[in-house]
Write a protein that binds this DNA or RNA. Structure first.
Lengths: 197, 197
DNA sequence: ATTTTTTAAATGATCATTTAAAAAATTAAC
DNA sequence: GTTAATTTTTTAAATGATCATTTAAAAAAT
């Protein structure tokens, strides 16, 4: 029963094309024509569907966020203990569907552009707030009160850093490795916390 | 005896202005005129001194790298044990002269632009290779052979992530806190390594 | 005087966006 | 089921704005 309108299909195609073209050419030098070319259309067509280049970019960012949200919800759903749920957050961030060159690259570029675009900044804040709040809720049951924020900051910084590096490597990414390593880092932070933090 | 030519002074001014203007307006939307305005000059003047916008950007990136290199050398010089030297690398990355909004912001923007500019990419690789090699040399004496790369990757990812977040916060940065937290993370990685990694 | 530095204005290129018309698809009528 | 109207989608070309860069001349410094 998937009754997709042409509009939905085109939206989908153009967002996919944007991911590809931004990855290939860079956020600040890609043109509407280049994006349109990826799917054999014209720049005018994009404006017909999205209204402007900015709106297209915003829609693409929403797409990335939606992939992360989906992975996060799925994994949280099948976790039962606080620690499992923290692991779920970490693993969602390096989910196979997300932790892939094209998306890492575009994501990092959006990050760096966000401070200069209210729309992108808004989306980014929503996402960051969600991850932060999930972390806090679970860490409350795993580490002493006064260490919650430190542990959370370290985990989030670590995840961001891995993404940043992923976007700059030309070697193919290994999402499974990234997840394993992230779980190791978590274990380190949970070992004997009174001693180091 | 600091005999500075006008050329040196102007170079300095324009690089400073670039840091300011890129921070204010964003790497991909700042114009030569805006940069020139910061020091009351004209865009043509920048081309007279730097030859092109790209060269100015490259010179600004070099400036940032030079600040890091200086901090790194200074701190390494006064460290005597392997652990102190690893600490020196971490602390240099969050040196007061470097870990400051304007520079974090510009640095992150350069990072995200580097894959699309051979010149920026080259500079970035040189820098990353230097930090990597320092880490390796010292970690060899601190952790078992098979864990060197993992520990190093975690530390570098963590540092990158902190920078990324710093560039996106509007709260003022606290370099001393960043250094303290980084040393904590190091201690965690060095505690009982056989257990977790 | 001569050289260095600065600038206003010109140049030329690039784009996002608009427009107006064509093409395709959908609907309605017979 | 074919045809004619209507709506949706697409595009080529026009528009207008923005910039980096060049140029040629003026201003400042040596």
């Amino acid at each position: 029963m998937s009754r997709k309108t042409i509009r939905d299909i085109r939206n989908e195609e153009f967002i996919e094309a944007t991911l590809h073209a931004v990855y290939e050419r860079g956020y600040h030098s890609v043109t509407l024509s280049e994006i349109a070319q990826v799917v054999g259309a014209t720049a005018a067509s994009i404006n017909y569907y999205f209204g402007s280049k900015d709106k297209l970019i915003e829609a693409t960012m929403r797409r990335l966020l939606s992939v992360l949200r989906t992975a996060l919800i799925e994994r949280l759903h099948s976790a039962t203990t606080p620690k499992e749920r923290v692991q779920a957050i970490l693993e969602a961030n390096f989910d196979d569907r997300l932790f892939e060159m094209k998306q890492c690259s575009v994501w990092v570029q959006f990050w760096s552009a966000a401070p200069y675009s209210p729309d992108l900044a808004r989306l980014q804040n929503i996402n960051r707030a969600r991850v932060r709040s999930h972390f806090r809720k679970e860490l409350r049951q795993l580490v002493p009160h006064h260490q919650i924020e430190t542990v959370r900051r370290v985990l989030q910084s670590y995840m961001d850093g891995v993404w940043l590096q992923a976007a700059q490597t030309n070697a193919p990414l290994n999402a499974a490795n990234a997840r394993t390593e992230a779980l190791h880092v978590l274990d380190l932070l949970l070992i004997n916390p009174d001693r180091a933090l």
